[in-house]
Design a protein around this nucleic acid. Structure first.
Lengths: 227, 227
DNA sequence: GATTTTACATACAGTCTGGACGGTATCCAT
DNA sequence: ATGGATACCGTCCAGACTGTATGTAAAATC
């Protein structure tokens, strides 16, 4: 008892924590209830905060969604980055990368939130712009890592990079349809096939011991909720 | 003037036409306004019919959506079938197939309706079941055509078939993200890359002059609206 | 031609949503 | 310590949506 009176948080701290709770609840809600099902009331209920808190930090629903999208892409970016760094094995680097990407990113509930945002962005111009900017950024950041870990065989560097872009398309397509298909083994067979196909035009570089050049950290995290 | 009194339509005719109008309006609405934006009121407005007509034919929103999904998959199935039959050229059969599939199916607004249903089916069990059944059926129907037109090189027949399944995933992924990317040329380069990759493990069969065995027509169109 | 069934139309009820508003607590600059 | 800014709260409101209930005309059945 007599818990230390918990030094009052500073304004900035309070704001940050509140926004964090809201964003987490929003992404959770997107994943579980979909875009349309994510009403402001349901989100604040999930976050355990009041309706007023939300409206204070985000003037309208779109602002909240934009910030959530921002947060999600940033999160996924980090996750994929760590994943790349964790791949040490140089023999089946490709296979393990694909498997891990599916297992740890694209098959997770959190990625369903991304699917929702993606589809919603077909109609929401602002959302599309936000995603567009971030995606471009992500691609630019990963390109060096690709060349760091892999090299083309009988193919151009452009093809090498394009192949990984295709991987993301493939995984997105898989993620949005996997629930209609059967089992994990079936998915695995497709992941394997992709790896084998990719191995026809690329291989892991030998003797890579250093992680790829750390890209600059994710750019400023400002310019979010405001538009 | 004195227009012929337009022989009153039979009940079945009236029902069929009304349902057709509703389904068309629904798919259009899905494509333009998304799943959540497709309210019953907006759909009947678009179809130019009364609210009562809709409720008469479809007891609730889900029934309408299920039938629309049914209709869409059937439509796409036919379209892809004709597309396969129209590919005569045996040299770059693969390239032309991929291009045509993108151009005539996956990049169309109608396919956006499918994306919407796909995402919605993540949460709607009934919708998922409906799509699942139809997809399985489609795959089974196309499998013979694949072997009719293509043969594997240094690969198994299973890989051949799996490769076309991957094509569908790739195209779905592309369709849901293309609006975030740049231009048509960029898309084209990815279609080309896919064709080149596929060509590494398959080729068009020589001297194929006959169309593939016509699968039985699409099964009965009953068991739709009711659940 | 009478009656039953089907197709369509209109009005209404209940629920929910997003945003607005007025008020309170907490923090910060001076 | 005090006045102003910032964070947070609960409620209300106008609109929209779905499903239902009720009414009418056309077709099918006998």
């Amino acid at each position: 008892m007599t818990a230390s009176p918990r030094p009052r948080r500073t304004q900035a701290e309070r704001s940050d924590q509140m926004r964090q709770r809201l964003l987490e609840a929003t992404l959770q809600s997107l994943a579980e209830d979909g875009y349309a099902g994510s009403t402001l009331s349901s989100i604040v209920r999930r976050a355990g905060v009041s309706r007023g808190a939300q409206v204070h930090h985000y003037p309208n629903k779109q602002a909240l969604m934009l910030d959530a999208a921002e947060d999600l892409v940033r999160h996924t970016y980090r996750q994929l980055g760590e994943l790349l760094l964790s791949i040490k094995d140089e023999d089946d680097r490709l296979t393990r990368l694909v498997d891990a990407a599916w297992e740890q990113v694209f098959s997770t509930p959190l990625f369903h939130a991304y699917s929702e945002l993606l589809i919603a962005s077909l109609r929401d111009q602002d959302l599309a712009e936000a995603l567009k900017g971030r995606l471009k950024l992500v691609q630019g950041v990963y390109a060096p890592a690709v060349e760091h870990y892999f090299e083309p065989i009988n193919a151009s560097k452009a093809d090498l990079h394009a192949m990984f872009v295709q991987l993301s398309f493939f995984l997105v397509g898989l993620a949005t349809q996997a629930h209609l298909m059967n089992d994990r083994a079936w998915v695995q067979s497709h992941l394997d096939l992709w790896s084998r196909q990719a191995a026809l035009i690329m291989r892991a570089r030998k003797g890579v011991r250093q992680p790829p050049p750390r890209p600059d950290a994710w750019p400023r995290k400002d310019e979010a909720a405001a538009r």
